[in-house]
Design a protein around this nucleic acid. Structure first.
Lengths: 112, 112
DNA sequence: CAGACATATGCTCCGATAGGAATATATCGC
DNA sequence: GCGATATATTCCTATCGGAGCATATGTCTG
C-alpha cells in the first residue's frame, strides 16, 4: 500500500481530505466544492480509498465518503521530531514581537 | 517553490530530514547512513535546499547541512483538523485496554 | 421496461522525476 | 603546481501519475 506521504502530495487529494475532515460528503458535493471534473474526483477517491484514508457507504444512488484518519498518524509521527524547532522559533518570534511592541495595557485586539 | 508535501513524498528525503533533525551532517555522513550513492544524496539535498527545507555551510572540503523547519509548518497546519479524530480514537483505545486489563498495582512493564 | 441521474473505469497523452554512470568543480595537504 | 578527497552537475532513460474524454456500471422514478 502506498505511503500516506505520497497520497497527500497531491493538492486535490489534500483538498478532498480537508473537506471530509468536517463532514461526510458525496462525490457530487466534492465535485462542486472543488470544481473538478467528476472522473477526476472519483479517481482521487479511489486512490484515497485504497490507501485507507477514506471509506464510503452507499446512500441511494450516491456514495457518501468519510475520513479514515489512521494512516495520517504516520505523518503525525514523522513530524514529531521537528516540533521542537518551530516551538523555539515561535518563542523567539514572540520575544521579538514583545520587544518591538512591549505588552501594554491588556485589551482586545482591534479588528482589521 | 514546490510544496513541502511534494518534497517529503520521497522516502530518501524524509530519511535525510530525519537525520538532520538531530544534528548537522555532511554529505558523506548522509551517504553512509543511508547507503545511497553520493550523486543521489546531492540531488536530494538540492531539492531540499531549493524548497527551503535545509541549508548548508562550508567546512573545509565538506558541506554541512542543517534543517530549516519552517516549510514543515505547512504540513503541521494542514494536519491539525485531523487530530481530533485520532485523539478520540486513542482515548477509545485506552478505555478499551483499561476494560480488558483494569489498571492494577502501578509497576513497571516487564521486558519482553 | 426506459430514461435520468450518480458514480466508476478505461484509455491515451504528456510532463515530471528518480536512478545510474560519467564527469565537472572545489578544497585540502604537500 | 599535483594528487586526493568531497561534493555538485549533466545526460540519458525508464517509469509513474494526472488530465481529459469517452464510456461503462449502478440505481432511482415512473
Amino acid at each position: 500500500m502506498e505511503s500516506a506521504f505520497a497520497i497527500i502530495a497531491e493538492p486535490s487529494r489534500r483538498a478532498i481530505l480537508s473537506l471530509l475532515a468536517s463532514a461526510e460528503r458525496s462525490v457530487g458535493d466534492l465535485e462542486q466544492a472543488l470544481r473538478l471534473p467528476q472522473p477526476s474526483v472519483s479517481k482521487h477517491l479511489r486512490v484515497l480509498r485504497e490507501a485507507g484514508l477514506v471509506e464510503s457507504r452507499v446512500d441511494g444512488q450516491r456514495r457518501l465518503y468519510r475520513i479514515r484518519p489512521e494512516p495520517l498518524m504516520e505523518v503525525e509521527a514523522w513530524l514529531a521530531p521537528f516540533r521542537r524547532y518551530w516551538s523555539v522559533q515561535v518563542d523567539a518570534l514572540e520575544r521579538h514581537l514583545d520587544r518591538m511592541n512591549p505588552p501594554p495595557p491588556r485589551r482586545k485586539a482591534k479588528k482589521r
